[in-house]
Design a protein around this nucleic acid. Structure first.
Lengths: 93, 93
DNA sequence: TATAATACCTTGCATAACAAAGTACCATAA
DNA sequence: TTATGGTACTTTGTTATGCAAGGTATTATA
């Protein structure tokens, strides 16, 4: 969900995502992210396009599809419900 | 963490936990919970004692160890930090 | 033409949730 | 006394996924 949140703000490539997460104290590594992005692409949530890099090989920039935007909204709502449920359980003491 | 929260309120056996979670819309099944409780016991976070049942085989009642109470506090704090971090990322739009 | 930096990708391992099936105990009805 | 049903605990096999580690490819620079 956090990855979709980042992509929903602006198109980014993998290293952007890793850095943005890191600034928020969420650590995700390449070995996790590349396969995940591939799965999200395959399931129609993301799409990508190639952009030449000023130095190095071209970059895969990801963006949300319409399906992806809707999926992100649903995910976000589920997350809020989960946070609410957990808060409900833990806040008794 | 939710399971530790429940046990921290009162000693319970497995079915109690499943029911209490269910009332909060958190679904966990036996095949998940029994092995998890065993792992928590092995790592010194939980302990249990047997109680005769009014009908059926005896029940394993779980309680938090001192280590478990401390671990739960830490988990709770980590959870809060995670919720904060996620909220930080998702609340931009 | 090496070397370094950047970017993408893959493989293998460990962990964990779950479905499903199994074992054991107890009360009650036939 | 034996079968049945309910309760409780346990195990097995499947699947998914995070990660460490290693690999491939492109570009600029020494």
């Amino acid at each position: 969900m956090c990855i979709l949140a980042i992509i929903s703000e602006e198109d980014v490539y993998t290293s952007d995502i890793i850095e943005k997460l890191k600034t928020k104290n969420l650590i995700v590594v390449e070995g996790t992210l590349y396969p995940l992005l591939t799965r999200l692409k395959k399931s129609g949530i993301l799409d990508y396009y190639w952009v030449e890099s000023p130095s190095g090989p071209p970059r895969k920039y990801f963006k949300l599809t319409e399906t992806g935007k809707e999926f992100y909204r649903e995910l976000h709502q589920s997350w809020n419900e989960l946070v609410q449920a957990v808060s409900n359980i833990t806040s008794k003491n």
